[in-house]
């Protein structure tokens, strides 16, 4: 008896495709339904319930700028300004330059009694950079430079084909080079600076105002406080204390439980600078 392996293979492939399709369909449907439920709770004024549903969505399916933004809205409406600011910061991190997120972030900062926009214009620009666009700009510069180099070298041949003089062809490509080289250097410099600026470990003050201390010990002298919702940069870690500073350069040691990281996981000891 001859076994038809092709039939078995077709059957197996069909089953696999069906299974995958079911899984994808299930994954695609469930979050949308949950999102609807969370948004409905928000519209009905059940902000705590809505925040809970958004948090569950994130825990189950992962982060996205809209989810963090919606969670920020629910927390803000529920009066949890620290949590709201944390989630707006996360949304802004995932979708830099989104004016809607920035608007809600500023409104909530103002509501929390914080400076709505503590950053200078260049810091705002750096925080708003879209990396995909930036990548496209730099690669375009490099490609144009490559074309300019090849064009300059092939001016004689191009002259024979086009009828234009080789000198004028060379002038054109040299002009292109003179335009692209500084542009590339400028964008490269800004890119590296921006990476450095954005690659900081940031946290948001949670709950009550955080106490700044002179040393990383519970008995150390208090040197000030940071209000709830304030965004700080974590510079150093010592046991359960972080050395932080805010946009107004107020700095000190803060116990870790008073902060939540903007990027989840960055407060792990191995990641702290």
């Amino acid at each position: 008896m001859r076994i038809d392996f092709m039939n078995y293979f077709r059957l197996f492939a069909l089953s696999l495709i069906t299974l995958l399709a079911t899984q994808v369909g299930a994954r695609a449907e469930t979050p949308d339904a949950d999102l609807d439920a969370a948004n409905r709770a928000y519209q009905d004024g059940h902000y705590d319930e809505s925040a809970k549903l958004f948090r569950q969505l994130i825990e189950t399916h992962g982060y996205s700028a809209p989810l963090c933004f919606n969670l920020g809205n629910a927390e803000a409406k529920a009066g949890h300004l620290g949590q709201a600011l944390l989630n707006y910061e996360r949304a802004r991190y995932l979708a830099p330059g989104d004016s809607g997120i920035n608007h809600n972030l500023q409104v909530t900062r103002k509501q929390a009694g914080l400076d709505p926009n503590p950053y200078r214009w260049w810091q705002v620009v750096m925080r708003s950079i879209n990396w995909t666009v930036w990548l496209a700009v730099i690669v375009t510069c490099l490609v144009l430079l490559l074309i300019a180099v090849i064009g300059t070298a092939s001016a004689q041949a191009l002259s024979g084909k086009t009828g234009a003089s080789a000198a004028s062809i060379r002038r054109f490509f040299k002009g292109l080079s003179f335009f692209c080289v500084p542009l590339f250097l400028f964008f490269g410099f800004v890119e590296l600076s921006t990476v450095g600026f954005n690659d900081r470990i940031e946290g948001v003050v949670m709950g009550k105002p955080a106490t700044l201390r002179l040393s990383p010990f519970d008995s150390a002298e208090k040197t000030g406080t940071l209000p709830e919702g304030e965004l700080v940069t974590v510079e150093q870690r010592h046991d359960n204390y972080f050395w932080v500073d805010d946009a107004s350069k107020q700095s000190g040691w803060v116990v870790d439980k008073e902060l939540e990281p903007v990027v989840p996981g960055t407060f792990e000891p191995s990641d702290a600078k």
């Binding site: 948004n39 399916h61 982060y63 919606n70 809600n104 909530t108």
Partner: peptide, 14 residues
């Protein structure tokens, strides 16, 4: 406050 977003957006684990 700007209203909630109705789309899920690009989900990512980290």
């Amino acid at each position: 406050l700007n209203p909630n977003r109705l789309e899920l957006g690009s989900l990512q684990a980290d």
